[in-house]
Nucleic acid binder design. Structure first.
Lengths: 131, 131
DNA sequence: TTAACTGTATTATAATTTATAATACAGTTT
DNA sequence: AAACTGTATTATAAATTATAATACAGTTAA
C-alpha cells in the first residue's frame, strides 16, 4: 500500500503523512472511509504503532482525517479540511516555490502546464462552490 | 540581517538556508558578491559557527553559492545554479503543492495571480535566454 | 612578515527529535 | 466474552541538531 524509505533523512511519520495525504487528495480514500487501523498498518509496514499514530494525529491536526475512539480513523469531508491558517501557509509556500522555480529558469508557461495537469488530477470530486 | 526562530522545530541551519536563498533570489546578494564570513555571521546571530558552515555547505551543494578557502563564500552566477536534478525536484514539489492547494479549494485563478506576482518579484535580473 | 582575516576539519558533548517497545485502559463490534 | 478499535504512558535507543574548543592552511593588508 505504501513504500517508505526507512533510510531517508525524512522521518517515517512525515513520509506517512505525505503518502496518506496524497491518497486522500486523489480520493483513493474517499470521505468518511475508514483508514487502516493503527495496529494493522503498523504490522503491514513493519514499523511501530506509535509512529502510525503520530502520523494520524498530524493528519487530524491538518483536518484531513477525524478519529472516533474505539471505532477508527476516517477521511474528513473536504469542507472540514479547509482552514484559513492552512490556506495562508500553502500560499506562502507556493510563492516561495514560484520564486525559486523562476529564478532557476523554469518558464511561466511550463508552470501553467503543470497547474493544468494538477487540476485534472484533483478534479472529479469537485464539491466546492457548485453555484 | 536575519531573524531566526530558535524555538522552531525547524533546524536553525535550514532556516538559514531558506533566508539566504531568498536574499540571493531577490538579488539582495548579487552574483559574485561575498557573503558574511562564517565567524562574523555566527557572532551576529549568536549561534555557533559550525551551524553557519552547515548552511553554507547546503547552499553550495544546491548551487547557490561557491566558496574559496581563505577568501570567503560568494553568490554563484545564476547559470551555475541550474541543475537538472534540482529542476525535477522542484517540479515534483510544485505538483504536490498544486494538488493540495486545489483540493482545499484554492482557485486556479488565484494561483495564476500569485504566479504573476512571483514573476514580478524575481524578474529584473533576467539574464536567461536574452534571444 | 606578521597580524587578522578567511574556509575547513576534528573531536567531544549536550540537547532535541524520532522511533521502538511494552503495557494499560476504555469504547465498539460481533 | 473475544477481538477489534483509539489513546496514553513510560522507558529506552538511535539519530539529528547544535554547541564548544581547537587546529591548520590560504588570503589580505598593515
Amino acid at each position: 500500500m505504501f513504500d517508505l524509505d526507512l533510510r531517508s533523512r525524512k522521518p517515517i511519520y512525515e513520509q506517512l503523512v505525505e503518502k496518506l495525504k496524497e491518497l486522500i487528495i486523489h480520493e483513493v480514500f474517499k470521505p468518511d472511509e475508514q483508514l487502516p487501523s493503527v495496529r494493522l498498518l503498523a504490522k503491514e509496514l513493519t514499523i511501530n504503532p506509535n509512529t502510525i499514530q503520530k502520523a494520524y494525529r498530524e493528519l487530524e491536526r491538518e483536518g484531513y482525517i477525524y478519529s472516533i475512539p474505539g471505532k477508527g480513523n476516517f477521511v474528513a469531508a473536504k469542507k472540514e479540511t479547509v482552514n484559513t491558517e492552512k490556506i495562508e501557509k500553502i500560499k506562502e509556500e507556493m510563492m516561495k516555490l514560484f520564486q525559486e522555480a523562476l529564478y532557476i529558469g523554469i518558464k511561466k508557461e511550463e508552470i501553467l502546464i503543470m497547474l493544468t495537469q494538477a487540476e485534472q488530477m484533483v478534479k472529479g470530486g469537485e464539491s466546492n462552490d457548485p453555484s
